[in-house]
């Protein structure tokens, strides 16, 4: 799994927990899986605001901003994050979501501009594969 390709940049991911959601077991498992797949993972810790997360993601210049939500606040938080990214001219950042999100909302989130939703039962390998695919599709930056 070692990244031996000298020309390939290491994929940088920020994993964020926003708002009043204290469930971080899942996101830590994901962080570990992505690290073991050779990615650099920045974890924000719990109870962040959308502003804090977007500012940090821009400074860290991550390829993917992954937000885990198990609080039901996804329809408030994702639009806010997308809006902030746009306001800060960072709309080329890939936004992914995970956690517990109803199917209807998933559809709506995709329409809004969230690139990928991976729900709570997604196996780690699938997350790794889809992250790699998302970055490959975006191309060099």
């Amino acid at each position: 799994m070692q990244n031996n390709d000298k020309n390939a940049a290491v994929i940088r991911v920020m994993l964020a927990k926003i708002g009043l959601d204290g469930h971080d077991r899942g996101i830590k498992v994901v962080a570990r899986a992505l690290r073991d797949a050779g990615m650099d993972v920045v974890y924000t810790g719990l109870h962040r605001t959308p502003e804090e997360v977007v500012d940090a993601a821009i400074q860290e210049d991550v390829d993917i901003l992954g937000i885990s939500l198990l609080s039901g606040a996804h329809m408030h938080i994702f639009p806010k994050v997308l809006e902030l990214l746009k306001a800060k001219e960072a709309e080329d950042m890939i936004v992914a979501g995970g956690g517990v999100i109803p199917d209807d909302d998933v559809k709506e989130l995709y329409q809004m501009g969230v690139h990928k939703i991976l729900l709570q039962d997604t196996p780690p390998q699938e997350i790794i594969d889809s992250f790699r695919q998302l970055v490959a599709d975006r191309g060099a930056r």
């Binding site: 992505l34 073991d36 797949a37 050779g38 650099d40 993972v41 810790g45």
Partner: peptide, 21 residues
């Protein structure tokens, strides 16, 4: 970084959390 995968969990952001924005 992990010497095995080359990946890393960069945790300083957690401790420096109150500095953003």
């Amino acid at each position: 970084s992990s010497p095995y995968s080359g990946g890393a969990i960069l945790g300083d952001r957690i401790r420096m959390g109150d500095l953003v924005s």
